[in-house]
């Protein structure tokens, strides 16, 4: 019988993989994708909790998280575009100044 704990463990694994990517990879685009992965893992735990408690409020929260993720992707990708235009590189280690 698949219960709440199973889904929470999968969600924790996905979150951990996202954390690993944010900390280990140096490519700004891949770091950004890993942030999306972490948001997805949290969404899954919201939906699992709301399924096993019988309510639907978790679905609404996951819906809002999706909207915030879309907004964040648009702004973040614009920032990455600008970073590449000014530095000709996507390496996050080289982007260590808060100016051009």
């Amino acid at each position: 019988m698949i219960g709440l704990t199973h889904y929470l463990v999968v969600s924790a694994l996905l979150f951990g993989i996202g954390t690993l990517g944010v900390l280990v990879r140096r490519n700004a685009l891949v770091v950004f994708m890993c942030i999306e992965l972490m948001l997805n893992a949290v969404n899954m735990s919201f939906i699992a909790f709301s399924r096993f408690r019988g309510g639907m409020d978790g679905h609404v929260v996951a819906f809002f998280v999706m909207a915030v993720a879309a907004a964040e992707a648009a702004v973040g990708l614009a920032l990455i575009l600008h970073l590449f235009r000014t530095r000709q590189s996507l390496n996050v280690d080289e982007a260590n100044l808060m100016r051009h």
Binding site: L8, V9, A12, G16, L20, L23
Partner: peptide, 21 residues
């Protein structure tokens, strides 16, 4: 620093899973 990052991610995952189970 990559080793340190990997260790931190591993600790996060381990902590979450032990908490959830």
């Amino acid at each position: 620093f990559k080793m340190l990052g990997g260790l931190m991610a591993l600790t996060t995952t381990w902590g979450l899973i032990t908490k959830f189970t």
